[in-house]
């Protein structure tokens, strides 16, 4: 059922954007951003189930929950930056898109420092 809403919103906004691009291109960008936001918010509530599933599996498999929480955080960052990058690329500003991508990569790497350090400690322990 959700897929019909998603496809519907996408097609309707496509038609509106094509119509608006002819008269006022500024409003076309607004319509594309709003279509993206509507679709994302529509699928958001399904994501909570997935995240709870991941957490429960991680706690059962006795994986360190700190890392799983960090992974979920990193997914959120990637999710948002992909949203902004695709909008910037769509409106022709690929320079800004690459800057956002670079920034989000740096944020993700800076957040994953503890994971990398714990991995290295693990490896050192294993080596004789």
């Amino acid at each position: 059922m959700e897929i019909i809403k998603i496809v519907g919103i996408g097609l309707i906004s496509l038609i509106i954007i094509i119509m608006l691009k002819q008269y006022k291109p500024e409003f076309a960008i607004y319509a594309s951003i709003l279509a993206g936001v509507l679709i994302l918010v529509l699928v958001m509530d399904k994501l909570t189930g997935i995240i709870d599933l991941i957490n429960s599996i991680a706690s059962k498999a006795s994986v360190n929950t700190k890392f799983v929480a960090l992974l979920i955080k990193i997914t959120g960052i990637a999710f948002l930056s992909e949203f902004a990058v695709s909008i910037c690329k769509d409106s022709g500003e690929s320079a800004i898109a690459s800057k956002i991508e670079l920034g989000s990569k740096i944020v993700i790497i800076s957040m994953s420092v503890p994971i990398i350090s714990s991995l290295l400690e693990l490896i050192l322990k294993i080596l004789p």
């Binding site: 919103i9 906004s13 509106i16 119509m19 608006l20 409003f27 076309a28 607004y30 319509a31």
Partner: peptide, 9 residues
């Protein structure tokens, strides 16, 4: 979306 289209036109 329709509001934005209306305002644009």
């Amino acid at each position: 979306l329709f509001k934005i289209a209306a305002i644009g036109i």
